[in-house]
Simulated scan of single mutants.
Amino acid sequence: MSDIPEYPLQWPEAVPRTTQRVTSQFKTTLHAALANVDKALRAFAKDSGKQVTGIVLSSNVGGLSLKAPADPGVAAWFTWDGEQRCIAVDRYPKPQDNLQAIFHIIEARRTEMRHGGLHVVRQTFKGFTALPAPDDWFKVLGFKPGATVGLNEVEAAFRSLAKNTHPDAGGSAAAMARLNWARDEARRQLGAPQ
């Protein structure tokens, strides 16, 4: 079972976020889009002969609100063929449209299965192999959650940690990517100029 929560949105670390959303042509309600994704994942499991388990549709749609969330992204996390996968879409301004896009992505994999076989789908699914959702930037930069932190402290912590984290200093590319993510997320949340 996945430990990914449904709410708030858990975006996969390696997937870039959309900076400029476009209006979709989908005419699907949230309820219908949820049903479409569920049906597509069940059909995909049947077509591939491999179970799809641990399905979590993570988004910022939560609680009782008539307003659309500021971040309409949706991430479909699940396990297939022994690996956790994530299909994440935030291209559209409405969560139901991003969810419907995920439905179409799954249906495209079903088409690949029919025409190319399981080996083709395994190849295309390598891009959906899920990296864990990113840590809290406070934790990555060495701050205690809830501490009052400003941009100067973020930059100082980043520079200090980068001295050992950078691949040229004996660190790894993955560790440096995580550190870069934390600094960028801190800057974004603290309102640094882009």
Results as ranks from 00 to 15, higher is better:
145 P>F: 05
60 N>Y: 05
35 A>D: 14
70 A>S: 14
69 P>E: 09
172 S>M: 11
31 H>D: 09
99 L>A: 04
171 G>T: 13
109 R>V: 04
180 N>S: 06
170 G>R: 13
106 I>Y: 09
158 F>L: 02
31 H>Q: 07
45 A>D: 05
86 C>S: 03
40 A>Y: 00
122 R>F: 10
137 W>V: 02
141 L>V: 13
58 S>T: 09
95 P>L: 11
133 A>H: 09
154 V>Q: 01
26 F>Y: 14
136 D>L: 10
84 Q>I: 13
12 P>L: 02
106 I>T: 14
86 C>G: 02
41 L>N: 13
148 T>Q: 06
54 G>S: 14
113 M>E: 14
189 Q>H: 01
152 N>H: 13
91 R>N: 08
141 L>A: 11
106 I>V: 15
77 W>T: 07
104 H>M: 15
194 Q>T: 11
187 R>M: 01
22 V>N: 08
24 S>D: 10
57 L>M: 14
137 W>Q: 01
133 A>L: 05
94 K>A: 09
83 E>L: 10
113 M>C: 09
84 Q>K: 12
27 K>H: 03
141 L>T: 14
30 L>M: 07
142 G>T: 11
117 G>W: 08
168 D>K: 12
91 R>E: 13
143 F>S: 12
12 P>Y: 01
165 T>A: 05
158 F>V: 04
51 Q>Y: 03
19 T>S: 03
129 T>R: 03
43 A>W: 00
41 L>F: 08
152 N>E: 15
172 S>V: 15
110 R>T: 12
146 G>W: 10
128 F>C: 02
45 A>Y: 04
133 A>P: 11
37 V>Q: 01
44 F>Q: 06
104 H>C: 14
116 G>W: 01
191 G>S: 06
109 R>S: 07
150 G>E: 15
19 T>P: 00
61 V>T: 14
31 H>N: 09
162 A>D: 11
79 T>Y: 03
62 G>R: 10
162 A>M: 07
165 T>M: 04
112 E>I: 12
173 A>H: 10
26 F>Q: 06
155 E>H: 06
110 R>C: 11
40 A>F: 00
9 L>I: 10
76 A>D: 12
153 E>N: 02
177 A>R: 10
32 A>E: 13
97 D>G: 07
26 F>L: 11
64 L>F: 13
74 V>M: 09
190 L>N: 02
138 F>I: 05
113 M>R: 13
75 A>N: 06
26 F>A: 11
137 W>T: 04
127 G>F: 03
122 R>P: 07
13 E>Y: 12
108 A>C: 03
43 A>T: 14
93 P>F: 06
139 K>R: 09
97 D>M: 06
19 T>W: 00
127 G>S: 08
64 L>Y: 12
117 G>D: 11
116 G>V: 11
131 L>N: 08
20 Q>H: 14
87 I>Q: 03
99 L>D: 06
76 A>M: 15
177 A>C: 01
44 F>Y: 13
119 H>T: 08
125 F>R: 10
149 V>H: 04
23 T>C: 00
187 R>G: 00
148 T>W: 00
65 S>Q: 04
115 H>Y: 07
90 D>K: 02
74 V>H: 05
87 I>G: 01
77 W>S: 03
177 A>N: 08
4 I>F: 00
1 M>F: 00
30 L>A: 06
47 D>Q: 06
141 L>Q: 08
70 A>H: 07
147 A>D: 15
155 E>R: 06
46 K>N: 09
99 L>V: 10
41 L>G: 10
5 P>S: 09
40 A>C: 00
